[in-house]
């Protein structure tokens, strides 16, 4: 009896090797194209830059060295400077916190309006999703600059700008989490006649709250950085002071160093803190 179904082992091996060779060829080609793109990209970027990479490479340490040496000479003043700029750091953190808070609230609302299967108006789900896409796509700096034109410099334009973006970003993540939530509590609540708001608040929110909180903490960490950057373009806080100290140049590098230190310390602190809290939150839901 001849076995027609299975070809001789040699053929399997050959076809496997041919397949493997083809895959390696494609993989190699893709890698080659990628490498060529990277090299050409760096070439182009280098050509369009004001100063070339090789010319600047030896100067890379100059500026930090200049700032640090002046700061070292004035090290006696450093504690005073740190205290002097602490309120600005607090303002930056406040901007981030208020923006995260309001953005998370708006994001939660948007998320619940756009959960497939649970949204109150199923037909409007794509609308809310596109709205979140647009909110996410507008860079914070765009909204901030426009609001600075209308409202003048200060923390409020930064808060609004960051909150918009946060609402879009968190809304998307929240709705993904909520879509994977267990439907049984919702059905149970529906069976006793709960309204949509009650079903969401009592059936879905308790399940997803740890994840929501974890994402919001991560967002807060990102927003601290964003708020420092927006300060640099005129929206209050420590970024603004940093820009002033830098524009002044030598003579105020002591201030610049103090601001660097404060900003660095705050970012590292919140990075570690939110990482720790998030780990606890996620492990808490697993247990």
């Amino acid at each position: 009896m001849t076995d027609l179904a299975s070809p001789p082992p040699g053929a399997i091996r050959d076809s496997y090797m041919a397949e493997l060779r083809r895959r390696r060829l494609y993989g190699g080609l893709a890698l080659l194209v990628f490498a060529a793109l990277m090299i050409a990209g760096f070439q182009t970027a280098n050509d369009r830059n004001a100063g070339g990479f090789l010319d600047g490479l030896h100067r890379i340490g100059d500026y930090p060295a200049m700032v640090l040496s002046e700061a070292w000479e004035k090290r006696a003043q450093l504690p005073g400077k740190l205290l002097e700029y602490l309120p600005d750091l607090v303002e930056t953190l406040n901007i981030a916190a208020v923006a995260t808070l309001t953005g998370a609230i708006a994001g939660t609302v948007l998320a619940f309006l756009s959960i497939r299967g649970l949204a109150p108006w199923p037909r409007a789900v794509p609308l809310f999703r596109r709205l979140m896409d647009i909110l996410r796509a507008i860079p914070e700096i765009v909204i901030a600059l426009m609001l600075i034109f209308v409202l003048g410099g200060g923390p409020v334009p930064a808060v609004i700008a960051i909150a918009f973006h946060t609402a879009g970003a968190l809304g998307k993540l929240f709705s993904e989490v909520a879509e994977n939530a267990d439907q049984k509590p919702v059905e149970g609540l529906a069976s006793v006649g709960a309204r949509w708001g009650q079903r969401m608040a009592l059936g879905v929110l308790p399940q997803v709250a740890p994840n929501f909180l974890s994402y919001a903490l991560l967002r807060f960490e990102i927003n601290v950085r964003a708020s420092a950057i927006l300060g640099f373009v005129g929206a209050g806080g420590i970024g603004y002071e940093l820009k002033n100290a830098m524009a002044w140049g030598p003579g105020r590098f002591g201030d610049a160093a103090a601001i660097f230190l404060l900003l660095f310390g705050a970012i590292v602190l919140f990075d570690q803190l939110s990482g720790h809290l998030r780990r606890r939150l996620v492990e808490g839901t697993r247990a």
Partner: peptide, 16 residues
């Protein structure tokens, strides 16, 4: 933000 400032001092403004 700070990397940008430091690098801009060395390489000047531009995409690189």
């Amino acid at each position: 933000l700070i990397w940008t400032i430091v690098l801009a001092r060395a390489f000047g403004p531009g995409p690189l």
